Simulated scan of single mutants.
Amino acid sequence: MIICHCNVITDKQIKQAARELCENPEGGVPTPGAIFRHLGYRPKCGGCFKSIIEVVYAEAEQVKDDSGQ
Results as ranks from 00 to 15, higher is better:
residue 36 F to G: 04
residue 16 Q to T: 12
residue 46 G to S: 08
residue 62 Q to N: 07
residue 31 T to R: 12
residue 10 T to S: 12
residue 48 C to A: 04
residue 57 Y to R: 12
residue 53 I to P: 03
residue 38 H to G: 06
residue 48 C to K: 06
residue 56 V to P: 02
residue 8 V to C: 02
residue 60 A to W: 08
residue 36 F to V: 06
residue 63 V to T: 09
residue 43 P to R: 13
residue 4 C to V: 14
residue 25 P to R: 06
residue 17 A to Y: 03
residue 12 K to C: 00
residue 19 R to P: 00
residue 7 N to G: 05
residue 13 Q to E: 15
residue 38 H to K: 15
residue 56 V to H: 03
residue 66 D to G: 07
residue 65 D to S: 11
residue 17 A to E: 04
residue 37 R to D: 09
residue 68 G to N: 14
residue 20 E to A: 14
residue 25 P to V: 13
residue 55 V to N: 00
residue 69 Q to A: 11
residue 15 K to H: 01
residue 13 Q to C: 02
residue 58 A to I: 08
residue 54 E to I: 14
residue 16 Q to L: 07
residue 8 V to M: 10
residue 67 S to K: 15
residue 50 K to W: 14
residue 50 K to V: 15
residue 24 N to Y: 11
residue 63 V to M: 03
residue 55 V to M: 00
residue 67 S to A: 12
residue 24 N to I: 14
residue 50 K to A: 12
residue 58 A to Q: 07
residue 12 K to N: 01
residue 55 V to S: 00
residue 55 V to L: 03
residue 18 A to W: 09
residue 26 E to L: 15
residue 5 H to W: 08
residue 7 N to D: 08
residue 46 G to V: 11
residue 13 Q to T: 04
residue 67 S to W: 11
residue 37 R to Q: 13
residue 57 Y to M: 09
residue 18 A to K: 06
residue 10 T to F: 00
residue 50 K to F: 14
residue 57 Y to K: 13
residue 39 L to I: 13
residue 12 K to Q: 03
residue 28 G to A: 03
residue 37 R to W: 09
residue 51 S to C: 07
residue 58 A to V: 11
residue 11 D to R: 10
residue 65 D to K: 13
residue 8 V to W: 04
residue 21 L to T: 04
residue 43 P to K: 06
residue 43 P to H: 13
residue 33 G to L: 10
residue 27 G to T: 12
residue 39 L to W: 10
residue 27 G to H: 07
residue 43 P to Y: 11
residue 41 Y to D: 03
residue 19 R to I: 05
residue 62 Q to Y: 07
residue 26 E to Q: 05
residue 11 D to W: 00
residue 7 N to E: 09
residue 26 E to M: 15
residue 27 G to I: 10
residue 6 C to N: 08
residue 59 E to V: 11
residue 25 P to K: 07
residue 18 A to F: 08
residue 59 E to A: 05
residue 47 G to C: 12
residue 39 L to N: 09
residue 56 V to N: 01
residue 4 C to N: 08
residue 13 Q to L: 03
residue 36 F to S: 04
residue 13 Q to Y: 02
residue 25 P to N: 04
residue 11 D to G: 07
residue 11 D to T: 11
residue 68 G to D: 10
residue 61 E to A: 08
residue 41 Y to L: 02
residue 18 A to I: 06
residue 28 G to H: 10
residue 35 I to F: 09
residue 60 A to R: 06
residue 25 P to Y: 12
residue 41 Y to C: 05
residue 61 E to Q: 10
residue 23 E to F: 05
residue 66 D to Y: 11
residue 14 I to H: 01
residue 13 Q to M: 12
residue 30 P to G: 11
residue 10 T to I: 02
residue 61 E to F: 13
residue 65 D to E: 06
residue 61 E to T: 10
residue 47 G to T: 13
residue 19 R to Q: 05
residue 49 F to R: 09
residue 33 G to A: 06
residue 58 A to H: 08
residue 39 L to K: 08
residue 53 I to G: 00
residue 40 G to V: 15
residue 3 I to D: 00
residue 42 R to E: 10
residue 40 G to E: 06
residue 25 P to S: 11
residue 9 I to S: 02
residue 28 G to M: 05
residue 45 C to Y: 14
residue 18 A to H: 06
residue 42 R to N: 09
residue 57 Y to T: 08
residue 20 E to N: 14
residue 68 G to S: 10
residue 35 I to Q: 04
residue 21 L to I: 10
residue 68 G to F: 15
residue 26 E to N: 15
residue 10 T to P: 00
residue 20 E to K: 14
residue 35 I to Y: 10
residue 44 K to Q: 11
residue 39 L to E: 07
residue 65 D to Q: 05
residue 5 H to A: 08
residue 37 R to G: 03
residue 39 L to Q: 09
residue 17 A to R: 07
